[in-house]
Design a protein around this nucleic acid. Structure first.
Length: 769
RNA sequence: UGGCCCGUAGGCUCAGGUGGUUAGAGCGCACGCCUGAUAAGCGUGAGGUCGGUAGUUCGAGUCUACCCGGGCCAACCA
């Protein structure tokens, strides 16, 4: 037997066997081949084919939440869009007309910043450029990123109406958004109120928290005494009324003791705006008497101060007091009932009001006096406690209106009587004369205890590096608790809460989360002092807060926006153009603020789902909103309020949330930590299908981890899946229908397998709905 | 600080209705088999006391409280 003659005699068994046979390759080569597949599908226009094919089916509308058109997509976008694609395609396969119209959020601060940055690089200033020129640059910028992200999303394999997406900045969208706002205004839900914001005097602009940086600064500090008084005096009465309390007054002994409550502040200029003093029921306070002090001292022998026990020694040292004694304990309960006079009372014939004491969580006895001077227009804590107490204070006959004590240029207004024209900060960012004027006025009235200087961390503008102030400003709000159209109990809040109950949440916890937010939230602040957005397109009667309600004018505005975009509002002749023949332009002010971008995105249901010309395959309300869990505060929330305010219900039937993608160790991804995973890299190295398979195999209700290991696991799984398919294909290569075996003739084992397969199919499908 | 959510194999992804004997699966790993599905396929095995503590209970991964770790939201960031 030799090699040469053995081979021909061997039987070629391979010809007698049904060996697996297929040209389905074992290796996918996804990064190379995926682009070809996508190109082919695009050429076939599969999306249009689907619409055609599903024209008569019931509609399933997954309404796309718009990503912000700013920068490349990250893993969060990839996860979100992939899950949407899985849902949308599944519903199409399950017999619905599942159209998917992607969209983008285009207005807003981050894009403004980018353009401003470019300006600064060129030595330009935003304020020197006509607003519509600036807006045009923002528009161009957004357009560019819409195109980039569109390509990235398509590369992910997401099927949708990519040639006809929605944009919050398209003219028809801007027109609808403005129209939605005017609906809110017309139904009496819009009002002008006030709110303190971070304000840069140098730049004459409001700042977002992200635009603030902290730096050390040396400030004047003062200790000021507020006399405890009877309260409820008539204007013009004595500076300090200490007549004994009458029977119906609940004023305590501190009046007869002629006591003072002492506060400490690093911002003397906020004293004119003081409306309350905050204390803490967790701190122990005492009544102290000065037994020895220099004769010319601000703090005089015989005066009695209420101070936190822990800080008394320090305060008296600052006040150059030589000796003092503790007379008594002052309880929190007693503090809650007393009232002080304002230390500037009488200045400019003003400051005749009661200064109540409020129990505040933010008060500590680490520094100061244990009492916090509270100017609701000039501090976040101050504003918070004041608003929280507003109802009770109102019942006590105290006016809870917050004064506009400082104007946009940093000057005192008439709300700071006797000090008008003094300045907090000047144009170069330096301290103005306000502090000195206040201190002098306090000293004249004997209200000063001590003064000093302190170095501390203080907010500065990111851009100018100059100090900023917290300043009360007029803003536009939507009522949460006012009856709509005069129907008792039919408020925005009650509508929204009902709508939440009527909505299906997946997972269910989202319902509680959103309900808690709606139940607690204050009125919606709609106004922003910015340039890139849809204007609050209303007119206000001069010297009043009355909003012009005129359907003809509103119609003109909508028509103009639809034709020219919202830039029409900022054109030179806009006021005359919209009011002509109807109202005297001289009688009205035009609101120059723009809308919160959340109102834009909250209105997408109006300009997308209801636009039958552009997207006939969509329906209102949406079947589903599907976003990350952060959107409880964002898009789910704003869409809910907008829908309830204008249509009485949520614009969606169901809400599905997914978690966030963490790094391989379960830590959040961030550029600064360098632990981000870019979807572009995965696609380049492994292919979009690996990313999609990872998304499909993860439990997206919760946060997911994505690291090297998770990717490798997915690659391995993909290979197994692929080989299983290859084996199946190989095995049916020789299949001849004539050989088919009837179900009844199958062996029991085979029947069991087919039964199991059918079961698996049934159990999978409902899970998607 | 507050609201909501999450925490089960020495690596990863997850099962574990109304509390009940030795807590399951896949991937990975180790060892072995096969060599006409072969940059494949098959088998066997090791590995966890369930984030921590304290309770309730005859009995808790499963209930309660507190704590620790992580996440989302609490801002004119989206």
């Amino acid at each position: 037997m030799t090699d040469t003659n053995s081979a021909p005699t061997e039987t070629d068994y391979s010809a007698t066997l049904f060996l697996p046979q297929t040209d389905f390759p074992m290796r996918a080569g996804l990064p190379k081949r995926e682009p070809d597949w996508l190109a082919r599908w695009e050429e076939m226009d599969i999306y249009a084919m689907q619409r055609e094919q599903a024209r008569d089916r019931p509609k399933f509308t997954l309404h796309d939440g718009p990503p912000y058109a700013n920068g490349n997509i990250h893993i969060g976008h990839a996860l979100n869009k992939t899950v949407k694609d899985l849902v949308s395609r599944s519903m199409q396969m399950m017999g619905y007309n599942s159209a998917y119209v992607p969209g983008w959020d285009c207005h807003g601060l981050p894009i403004e910043w980018k353009i401003e940055e470019q300006y600064r690089a060129k030595g330009l200033d935003k304020n020197d450029v006509p607003v519509n020129e600036f807006r045009q640059e923002c528009r161009t910028f957004a357009t560019k990123w819409v195109d980039v992200q569109r390509q990235e999303f398509k590369r992910l394999g997401v099927l949708g109406d990519w040639e006809n997406p929605y944009l919050t900045m398209s003219f028809d969208a801007e027109a609808t958004i403005a129209n939605e706002l005017m609906k809110v205004a017309t139904s009496g839900q819009l009002y002008r109120g006030s709110k303190p914001v971070m304000w840069s005097v140098v730049e004459r602009t409001a700042l977002a928290e992200a635009e603030i940086e902290y730096a050390d600064i040396e400030s004047d500090t003062i200790w000021v005494k507020f006399p405890v008084v009877r309260g409820h005096r008539d204007p013009g009465e004595a500076y300090v009324d200490r007549r004994p309390p009458t029977a119906d007054e609940i004023n305590p002994r501190l009046v007869q003791d002629e006591a003072f409550v002492v506060i400490w502040t690093t911002t003397p200029w906020t004293i004119p705006a003081n409306r309350a003093i905050s204390y803490s029921s967790k701190i122990s306070y005492g009544l102290y008497e000065i037994t020895l002090a220099p004769s010319e001292n601000w703090a005089k022998t015989g005066e009695r101060y209420v101070i936190a026990d822990k800080l008394a020694t320090e305060v008296f040292a600052k006040a150059k007091v030589q000796a003092f004694q503790r007379l008594d304990t002052v309880s929190a309960e007693e503090l809650s009932r007393i009232v002080c006079a304002h230390p500037l009372q009488n200045l400019g014939s003003g400051y005749y009001f009661d200064v109540p004491l409020l129990d505040g969580e933010h008060v500590t006895d680490d520094a100061g006096t244990g009492f916090v001077h509270t100017a609701p227009g000039h501090g976040l804590d101050d504003f918070g406690i004041w608003m929280d107490s507003a109802r009770l204070l109102g019942e006590r006959g105290i006016d809870t209106k917050i004064p506009y004590a400082v104007d946009d240029a940093g000057y005192y207004t008439k709300d700071a009587p006797g000090l008008e024209g003094a300045r907090v900060i000047d144009d170069s960012g330096k301290k103005g004369d306000a502090n000195d004027r206040v201190i002098a006025a306090l000293a004249v009235r004997g209200a000063m205890v001590a003064r000093g200087r302190v170095k501390h961390s203080y907010p500065h503008s990111w851009r100018s590096k100059k100090p900023v102030i917290f300043r009360n400003t007029p803003q536009w709000f939507v009522y949460m608790d006012r009856d709509i159209a005069g129907k008792a109990g039919d408020t925005l809040r009650s509508r929204a809460l009902n709508a939440i109950d009527a909505t299906r949440f997946v997972p269910g916890a989202g319902q509680n989360r959103l309900r808690a937010m709606i139940a607690d939230r204050p009125d919606w602040v709609l106004s922003r002092q910015r340039a890139w957005g849809v204007p609050i397109s209303v007119f206000v009667k001069k010297h009043s807060n009355d909003i012009l309600v005129d359907e003809v004018v509103n119609h003109r505005i909508v028509e103009a926006f639809a034709a020219e975009g919202a830039d029409a509002w900022f054109a030179d002749d806009a006021k005359e153009r919209f009011l002509q023949d109807r109202h005297d332009p001289a009688d009205y002010d035009m609101v120059r603020d723009i809308l919160d971008v959340w109102f834009d995105s909250g209105s997408t249901h109006a300009f997308v789902l209801e636009n039958k010309q552009k997207w006939p395959d969509l329906k209102w309300p949406a079947s589903l909103y599907l976003e990350g869990s952060d959107q409880h505060r964002g898009w789910f929330h704003s869409s809910l309020l907008e829908g309830c305010a204008t249509r009485g219900r949520a614009p969606y039937d169901a809400v599905l949330t997914h978690g966030f993608t963490m790094d391989g160790d379960g830590k959040k991804m961030s550029k600064s930590l360098g632990n981000t995973v870019a979807p572009q890299d995965i696609i380049k190295q492994y292919g979009a299908d690996i990313l999609r398979l990872w998304v499909a195999s993860t439990d997206y209700w919760e946060d997911q981890r994505l690291g090297k290991e998770a990717i490798q696991t997915t690659v391995d799984n993909y290979r197994k899946l692929r080989n299983t398919l290859r084996w199946l294909l190989g095995n049916i290569a020789h299949y001849d229908p004539a050989d088919a075996v009837g179900f009844a003739d199958m062996p029991e084992l085979e029947r069991l397998m087919l039964h199991r397969l059918a079961q698996a199919r049934c159990s999978g499908a409902p899970g998607l709905q």
